[in-house]
Design a protein around this nucleic acid. Structure first.
Lengths: 271, 271
DNA sequence: GGACCGATTTCATGATGTGAAATCCGCGCT
DNA sequence: AGCGCGGATTTCACATCATGAAATCGGTCC
């Protein structure tokens, strides 16, 4: 093989299998190029020998991860990838990806951060980060909650549901009053959800706990369905419009970051 | 390495890269097991050395195709797979997969078979198989068609759209009359589509061409959206209820076969 | 606390992936 | 048609790299 390798690639030789690593790169390159791709394009992008690249393509084609394109010598991603993707439990692997993003959100806002999902008619808080202030908000801990109608996290999840579903849940759980601000009318809640969908975030202004304002944003799957919600809890004394503006921007950005939408297109090829 | 290999695996040594092949098997095994999986389960299924398997997992984890599960020593599929899947152009790779299925449908029914998709407000027939009879039906060839309201293929595609979308297309293309049976009333068409959705297939009884009955079924993506339609064209003289029954069953089965839904679960693990 | 079970790492060995070169194949040009 | 070129395939000898036996680590259950 190449003996003039030397410093070509950084010396960070991880303990990974070269051929597998290259095969994954090939898949990602085809994905990045969108549509049908020639052998040459792939090996240019990856600086691979055409032969090596072809061996990899042959292997991927044998298992339907890659398919021949319409024209001769063209390649495209195959259906097997979609079948694999079907088996990815997005909710289950979300906490793992969420932690670093939540740490960052926690660092920037300095407030408590929560991640919750909806499962079997319940809202379940999966991950939590504490505020970086002496005055900590003790809003909902890890586990189930019946206060979807009164929390930002809950309203985000509700905003991804149909009107009937929301009504059903209101009836099922009831709409308990927690503070003078709690919304206990299904119609008012539905109207609020409509507004939330439009502006892209939900808010709880002392509806669940007095002196606490929460701001929530959605995490979506590739089809755009809401699979989880992310929220920031701010004590009322820090809840100035300026600070809330920052919080809204950051929580929405974090939600978008966790939403699975296509590959990182940062290095879009020239041709 | 193992020298007592010999007849362990069939001698069908394709020209594929062993390590890549194994890595793909690992991914599929995790997918097949649903949820979190231990190293041991994987190497049992694949009859791989635990160390080899671990090397592969390490590589896949470095690129987020696999993630550590909630418990220690557990593995699950990672989000990168979903990102790759986003880039699979299901419509573009469909014809390739469809051909063998259409050949089979053509063989079993002995009638002409068509595959069509909807793109930019038009129905486009992509692949076609001729009937295996002296009396051939010359229904629509490859390319665009403005007869969605009068063909089985078209009605299948329309049945995957909202009422507004269907109305918009009726207005846009008009509802030309081709035969005495052509449906030219949007309301009647919408009612028919409702029925088609319920029974799972669409039919064109001499609505586009006299003496020709067509039966169509949907091809869906993993989210259940209709991405293409498959149809069989039967000349009226062969269109007995018995034959049409066969045709309906077969075209629906073929449609299901082309729809991308999870992995082949044929070899479900015991534990 | 100790023994077991399984995950992880190490490391030497040679099987296996690699890439230079040869070949094939389709397409455009004369 | 025939030729020549650009790219995709295939071949094949070499040494790199994947491999798996064994050692180590790390939890968990007695």
């Amino acid at each position: 093989m190449t003996q003039i390798e030397a410093e070509a690639s950084p010396p960070q030789a991880d303990r990974t299998i070269q051929s597998v690593d290259r095969a994954l790169s090939v898949l990602e390159t085809i994905a990045r190029r969108r549509g049908e791709v020639t052998l040459q394009q792939i090996c240019e992008d990856l600086e691979l020998n055409a032969s090596t690249c072809h061996h990899i393509l042959r292997t991927l084609m044998a298992r339907n991860y890659v398919r021949p394109g319409t024209a001769r010598g063209r390649y495209m991603l195959g259906s097997q990838i979609v079948m694999l993707a079907e088996a990815v439990n997005v909710k289950a692997e979300l906490p793992g990806r969420a932690k670093p993003v939540m740490d960052e959100l926690n660092r920037v806002t300095e407030e408590a951060v929560h991640l919750a999902v909806f499962d079997r008619d319940e809202m379940i808080t999966l991950v939590k980060r504490e505020a970086r202030h002496a005055l900590k908000v003790d809003s909902g801990s890890i586990g189930k909650s019946r206060a979807m109608h009164a929390t930002a996290t809950g309203k985000v999840l509700l905003s991804g549901m149909s009107e009937e579903e929301v009504r059903r849940l209101c009836t099922l759980h009831g709409m308990a009053r927690f503070t003078v601000n709690t919304c206990t009318d299904p119609e008012a809640l539905l109207a609020e959800l409509e507004q939330d969908r439009a502006r892209g975030f939900s808010e709880d202004r002392e509806e669940f706990q007095l002196y606490v304002v929460c701001t929530g944003a959605a995490v979506r799957d590739p089809a755009g369905r809401i699979i989880a919600s992310l929220s920031v809890s701010t004590p009322i004394n820090r809840a100035t419009e300026a600070h809330l503006g920052l919080v809204r921007r950051e929580v929405m950005a974090a939600g978008r970051k966790l939403s699975l939408t296509s590959l990182d297109m940062s290095e879009v090829p020239s041709s």
